[in-house]
Design a protein around this nucleic acid. Sequence first.
DNA 1: TTGGGAATGTGAATTTTTTAACAATTCTTC
DNA 2: GAAGAATTGTTAAAAAATTCACATTCCCAA
Lengths: 212, 212
Amino acid sequence: MKSEHIPKATIARLATYIQVLSEFKREGTDVVSSERLAEACSVNSSQIRKDLAYFGEFGVRGVGYYVQDLITSIKRSLGIDRAWNCGLVGVGNLGRALLRHREFSRKGFIIRGAFDCDPYKIGEIVEGMEIVCSRQLPAKVKELSLEIGIITTPPERAQRAANYLVGAGIKGIINFAPSRISVPSHIHLEYVDFFHHFYAAAFHIRFAEHQE
Amino acid sequence: MKSEHIPKATIARLATYIQVLSEFKREGTDVVSSERLAEACSVNSSQIRKDLAYFGEFGVRGVGYYVQDLITSIKRSLGIDRAWNCGLVGVGNLGRALLRHREFSRKGFIIRGAFDCDPYKIGEIVEGMEIVCSRQLPAKVKELSLEIGIITTPPERAQRAANYLVGAGIKGIINFAPSRISVPSHIHLEYVDFFHHFYAAAFHIRFAEHQE
DNA sequence: TTGGGAATGTGAATTTTTTAACAATTCTTC
DNA sequence: GAAGAATTGTTAAAAAATTCACATTCCCAA
């Protein structure tokens, strides 16, 4: 198959596949069938084969998928076979937690700059990184080759942070702040909102109760 | 319309609607049309009307929706018109950040218990809350009427945390740890994985470059 | 070297979700 | 109080995503 438009849901599932495949690898499994992978991911096995088909042919008929090869192939397909330099704007509780989160660099997203507009925070060192004034974004984005901006400001300051980042020439933005922002269409924008998972849980729990 | 099966995507959008409606409210807007709300949420206006129709009729034909009423109606529909007691297992970086995150209680998800199995952490006070040994979960879940469990352990300990929570009689679990877990089917389980947003960003940025 | 078993990749069928279109309802103005 | 403008709720159409089903390919053993 290869290419064309790829559903958002496929990308999300590929992330899951990598996670589960990495676990298989740790357990010493070398080869896995779509059936077995599907079970571990709670999806349909055709789904997996379809998802992979968007990017190429990675399996061996009659055999299955070589775990390590598949991880490598998926990573290459997603563009995470290399490191991405990120800048984080807004060093509050959440921002600090992300700065300290080991998983970021382990997954290839290296946070190279931390920015805030609070004079009390500027100059402070977090995880070996000096917090820099947001106004310096244009200079720093170039200097550090930042490509992805992470917004962890309070909601009312998210748009301004986005403006700084866009002006500085960032390529994509991941917005953790609970507010909608607008950016030019060539900038890729993702919203992270883990509260909707809480809403979903609340809804389903209450619905289940209502059923009894 | 009312009821039947409700798409996951609808729940996620309702969360967005609440967010945007709250902003409208803050700005002093009393009434809003599905068209205007749709634009602010970057969705189709039929989509909004359809999403709402799952739960009832909340608008006035020829007029639109009363902002405050709609917020209230959506919250009631989702089951977030009351507080939910949560327990958090795994007080690492991410766990601490969530414990300190004001937004939780503001949105009605009250974290009433913090649990960890590390003897060095037990007894420590975070945000006015004492960290308790995970083994005490059964007692505490009852005592504090906890309904939702939040897992923020390292991946290898997520399943054990889930087992404790399920054994203690929790109703739903939100897993922030990057690993798949299995729970009985009557427990509602949500995975929070913000890395897939990073993957999506990486993928789209690289794809855009490839297009030029 | 051939045949049987296994599992992929993919076209077709199905299901689900989204969008369009419009009848029904409400408000406003004359 | 009737006509016109606005906007919902809902049915029908379109589009998209998922699942099925199977021909194709590969491995292994006899």
